[in-house]
Amino acid sequence: MTNQEALSIIGQSVKSLVASGVIDTEFDLQPDTVLLGTGAVLDSIGIITLLSDVEEKVSDASGQELYLVLGDIHDFNEDKQNLTAATLAGYIEKITA
């Protein structure tokens, strides 16, 4: 899965979670959107629901059994303070390669 495809899936998840009311705040997802950390658009529960939804969508799209574990994403993330959409997409690109 390419970085762009992963970003697209994250964007789809954000839209569906906002539409269903699971995520309260509507926002336009950009690669530099901070999902977790200073100035994050999501609260701690919001990031959990987003990762759950993205995990399912990525697994379905790739046909692989994948799990998005925050600790593993944190280890992958060079910027330990903030997790951006681009970094999450990069992590998905890596684990689906």
Binding site: L17, S20, G21, V22, I45, I48, T49, S52
Partner: peptide, 8 residues
């Protein structure tokens, strides 16, 4: 609980 969060 992750699934329940999705259903609220």
């Amino acid at each position: 609980s992750k699934l329940m969060l999705l259903k609220k």
